[in-house]
Write a protein that binds this DNA or RNA. Structure first.
Lengths: 226, 226, 226, 226
DNA sequence: AATGAATGAGCGTTCATTCAT
DNA sequence: TATGAATGAACGCTCATTCAT
């Protein structure tokens, strides 16, 4: 029964404009709306101006709100950052979980489909801008590191299934090695062919290359004895 | 006569502890040594604590120097950052240019060798820490973007030659596509298998996977009509 | 008819855990209980952390109550502080009024008894902590100054009687001078031998010294012509 | 050789307008003058408006100086407060050490003289205002407590000598008990007869009472067996 | 009677920068 | 070259207070 966790998750969260919020009981109160507005404003600043520019004052100003009120909803900056990270990452998780539920389609095609969707996402402004910030942050913040790696683990889920289907002979470790390599290989394209990056116009070529390369790799991979 | 630019570069710079400085005429004055000391201290902070922590004050303190003196050598923070970036990037360029001057070795072996060296570098603390910062910065700073992409272009130099040797039938654009994909694919591993990253212990496996995958890719690639 | 004011006072207030509240007609409503809870929480913070730490937020938190509700009961901080001061001071007044109603006991013994009780009180945490705050506040707040001096005036009441009994020859001003000196002399011990002060262990000695000294003083005092 | 420590101290400090500063080698630099100006302004605010009002911004404003410059000289508020406390307390210590070097004067007269000087000081605005703040602070700040008690210990020095001279038969502990009682007895007058306190006009009477009382006490005191 | 939401002022602190010495 | 001194802007945060619900 795959994806059950994902579906559970979906039913427990609400996604609003690129952010996923835990769906608490009780009506859609004013406070909740304000919190979401704040997190959304923070996200917009993060994407458009970067993490350094994402100050409490700037977020408050973007919400047309006084600083004091912002700290009423998020007592410390860390609270806000953590909650934003959670909402951003959860939104990606939901997005990934929605991928590739294609029954009766050959695994190669599903692999191609999934890679296409991921590379499409990488080319969006939001993804191109946010992930490098997360990578940089995760170098000095264990919380961010863990949460981001958890996201990627989730994103590798569909890949694992496809690879297992293509190569039932492989042991679990090798399947995971392949999935990680494939996933990481695509992530690398963020820097070169992401939004407004110099090689963005050739992303369609890299997509072809990637898919061909990944299919061949999975088909032909023979792990060495360790 | 390949590498001539690199060799020119080498003769025009001096590399000191991970940084490359333009070798100006005139003696090794005290001022120059101080500047290098400052940039080195900045680099250490950048690596160990991140870009945000790399403030003028902290750099000055690390140099056991007063803030006023630091601003004498680097009037603005931007001067310092730009010069640091230049020195860091140039040092990487020199490093890359020193790669793969193996005459009489089959191109597949040279490709394997070069990938091995790059992935080894990715696993170093310095590279794992610096590049995500550069990627994040380059999203909001054209200067950084250009300089980093220039670095990568240089790093792709040896790949281009090898691919051309393996596939003389391919047009230039396709060769460049392949080189970029291969290079970017390895960069992606920074986040997963770089220094102190969760999959660092399996880097040797990804290295094998990468090399096998890249060789196959170059061997078999057929560009589509665009 | 001495003490009449005090006894009147006693019947008009209710003392709850170190605080005295005016006993208004009408039932013991919820609102009244809440106000007392608030003042008590404020007192606890005042004693344990000092006046500066006694913020509205902290008091509300100590009452497990929201800030909004606290300001419902005490619209401004000054209201709360004044009322707390009143309750604290009145409780002391009631305590003092209960002192020394010893009929048929020699005045010297009553003086000794009263000084013993006062110095015992000075050694309590509450008194050691509160009074220096009141003294500091009274330097810049006339209301506090007046209320505290009123308290001390009341506390001198029993002393005045005893001194008058011991020295019926003295004029009123001299009796008051002596009472004030004796009272103030004991107050000074707060700083040296109060709760957790360095000379607290020797308070019993100072008590002996004080009593001996005060008895001798009252016995022998001859006012100068002014 | 009594007072040697005091005299050493005097030669190592410089007293400027109620504050004593350690006399560092080197000229009277601008920075030193600025620091003294800051501490002096802080003292004035402390005296006139109280500890709570003594904020960094207000001090800076009183110096006609920008906040940033204040934090250049005193990086944290605690630095400033500690240094102010030190300067204030040291100035009092120097003042006390200058007391009562009367050779060939009967000890009773010296006791009277010393008490007169102390009570005179207590009536000054500065002393009346500062000490209650210190007492309140010392309830929650060990550093302040220790420093203030150290000051009082120094202030008791002359008393100890006089008492010893008057009562060579007493053991050291009893002498110290008497000195502490006498000192604390006078401190208590701060609240009643200090600057602008309601009984300030009668301070001269309390002085007479105090002296008579203290002389009698020292003359007649017989410690109990403990 | 109590809570939620928001404001405005102020807090101590950090920052890059300027400039006189 | 280097330090000392000062500025102005911004930072995250706390505070008492107000007011609608």
């Amino acid at each position: 029964m795959p994806h059950s966790r994902a579906e559970t998750l979906k039913f427990k969260t609400i996604t609003v404009a690129d952010l996923a919020f835990p769906l608490r009981e009780g009506g859609y109160s004013k406070g909740r709306r304000t919190r979401e507005q704040i997190l959304h404003a923070a996200l917009v600043i993060l994407v458009s101006e970067g993490y350094i520019a994402m100050t409490m004052r700037r977020i408050a100003a973007a919400c047309d709100m006084k600083l004091g009120n912002l700290t009423y909803h998020f007592p410390t900056r860390e609270d806000l950052v953590r909650e934003l990270l959670e909402a951003v990452v959860t939104a990606y998780e939901i997005e990934f979980d929605n991928l590739a539920h294609m029954e009766g389609v050959p695994p190669e095609d599903r692999l191609a489909e999934i890679c296409g969707l991921i590379l499409e996402d990488i080319r969006t402004k939001k993804t191109t801008r946010i992930f490098p910030e997360l990578w940089a942050l995760s170098n000095h913040d264990k919380f961010v590191l863990d949460r981001v790696q958890e996201l990627y683990a989730r994103a590798r889920g569909p890949l694992l299934e496809i690879i297992k289907e293509m190569r039932p002979d492989l042991d679990k470790a090798s399947i995971e090695d392949l999935a990680l390599f494939i996933s990481s290989s695509m992530e690398g394209l963020t820097i070169f062919a992401g939004h407004e990056k110099p090689f963005e116009p050739r992303m369609h070529v890299y997509e072809k290359i990637a898919i061909q390369s990944f299919v061949d790799l999975v088909r032909s991979y023979t792990p060495e004895d360790e």
